[in-house]
Design a binder for these strands. Sequence first.
DNA 1: ATAGGGTTAG
Length: 810
Amino acid sequence: MSATLSYNYCFYDSTVPRNNKNLTAKRAAKLKLDEDSVFVTNPRISKSLRRHRNPSKNLPASTGPPQDFSLARALRYYVDSGNMENAVCVFERMNHSDPYCWNVLIRGFTDNGLFREAIGFYRRMESEGVRADKFTPTIVIKACGGSLSFCEGQKVHGNLFKVGLDLDVCVCNSLISMYSKLGYIEYAVRVFEEMPIRDQVSWNSMISGYAAVGDGWNSLVCFLDMQALGMKPDRFSIISALNACSVECFVRCGMEVHCQVLKFGFELDVMVQTSLLDMYNKCGHMDYAERLFDKINPKNTVAWNAMIGGYVLNEQPCKSFACFRKMLEEDNVNPDAITMINLLPSCAQLGALLGGKSIHAYAIRKGFLPHVVLETALVDLYGSCGKPKMAERIFGEMAEKSVITWNAMIAANVQNELNMEAMELFQDLLNKPLKPDAITIASILPAYSEVAPLREGKQIHGYIIKSQHHSNTYVLNSTVFMYAKCGELGTAQEIFDRILFKDVSSWNTIIMAYAIHGFGRKSIELFYEMRDRGIKPNGSTFVSLLTSCSISGMVKQGWEFYHSMKRDYIIDPGIEHYGCILDLLGRTGNLEQAKNFIERMPLEPTARIWGSLLTASRNNKSIEFAELAAEHILSFEHDNTGCYVLLSNLYAEAGRWEDEERIKSLMKNKGLRKTIGCSLVETKGKPYRFINQDRSQIETNTIYNVLDIFSSKMGDAKYVHSVTKFRPQDLLKKRANSPENHSVRLAICFGLISMKIGNPVIVRKNTRMCKDCHSAAKKISEITNREIIVGDSKVFHHFRNGNCTCSDYW
DNA sequence: ATAGGGTTAG
């Protein structure tokens, strides 16, 4: 025994030269291969000749039972229990010349998701000159499929071709599966078409392969073709066909497959049941899914996960939590990483940071981390809950990242207005081997919608047109919104019209585009058009609609939509909906009611919720409520600079200078600085940026002259708001920071003198427009008889004939 | 003694 051990350890130690026996074997194998390759690579030798060769003639005869049964048993035991460390230990003590132990070990790695290691051991097997037997290729191909390494798979395929094993039915079936897992469906199709004999597994591999690449249609075609040849579907075919129905949202097809489930007697098969309920969930038929779920007995973790995921998918986050709680009450079921992954988006939907954090903690306690998908879901959660720093931390500490992880991080930055960070991240990604996908582009686009020049947005649009994503609905939806945010509502509408396959998000986007521009009636019109075209609205549709009603001051309609959402569409209001409702309440000026609404809300109020009350307080000049709201907002770790500024302005307007001073010094102590207000106007494709009191532009003199003319024309009205806003001593000084010289006004004047008459002047600014500038813009539109559009950080104000689309509430 | 196709996920 000890002799065997020391002998085997020689292999492990790379400093010890390998014995000649193996080298000879390797050379012999190579010679054999060369001989074969002459045969098979000769194009004149027909395909049929190759087909009729007996593939197994190249395989070594069985070496018989291994010398040590107990070691082989131990190896199998460790492999089956997932203890690969011990499995390797046992393996190292075995005689390596038998392919059997290699096969078991490589399969073990594959079954435990350690694909790289599986391929590594296969390479070692080759280099040690151990000849593969008929089981090895299928095992290795599976590992290649799992590791998503196309190169490795091609190499193996090539070798199999050389030894004539590429026509073996098992090998072909695993090749089909490997290629479709890698996304190369056309390779899978070729293998399928060229194989001499197809069995049920071959058909099943194609059905699942098409579904895996998102081609549910062809998957179902295969499902039917197979039956036309007289083969009955088995549980594998059924499960894959159901997957195809989910992919295409073909609920009627799904029901037909459901009938077959009953006909062929699979109705008690848990996997089939789970696939069925998943199909109904994904097609939006929660009622059927719930009924099926009730019948599953006993329910395993996967079934629970599918149901929790279904509620999340159908935007019923409260129900998904309820389902999770029921799952915890069960004795024999334990939540796993996928449970967490399914549950996390419901926290994001509810804006429930605390819930998300407790899931995070639970995942840590249960040892689910590290886990790429779970960590990505966490990045997404923290991003959605206004915690980009937390998202960043998880992202930074991740051992493994996928494109989806990058997408989540970019989105986290964009959602939290960290546009520069998002753009930098996008640049970083371009230098990585990972390829940006449609979702990356759609996520980065909003960063270009803020105060980046339209020219840059157009450049990205150009990149999209040239890329393979030019007709991707998801990408186009983001492009529509980008143009809307850049003030080009017409271009947005044009691109929307040209989207070939408009999904619910396309409609939500265009409704929101008109919403932020203050065209409430147009938004509602589009909502009805969408409904008439059979598109089912979701939670976001109502966010768009409610936003539209609040911006356009359509309070009554807003409430009607809110009730209809719950009653007619069974959608639980999320934190966003509550925010919109608060904006509606703010408009009516009933701050007491708004406060009560926040207290009665079933969700934890976020900074955005209190921000809504703060805005309402400002518009209704209530310092009492503003202080209440501010107190809450300042308790968040959120970037609340805007809140300080609003509050200090409010104190100033009321002449409460001491309080104003207090807030200013609070800001100073916290190291917060007022965001530098900046306005952007573009003419002839060139961007011009203005800050307050800007004198850096070439046209400065003209701009200030025009401004003076307007000031005199506006007459006394100009100081109505501002007179109380400045301390007496400040009024004596040269009014340095007077709203008269605010960046928006400079930009408007520049726009008026440099743009063609008839074109609207479009100005975008990074902070909210102040009251003074708002009334000035109204006047200017009246005096000049031109349309002025100012997009601030929240809404677009369309000034025409002395009026604004926001009806003076924003 | 060992192989190929299957459920839930960002």
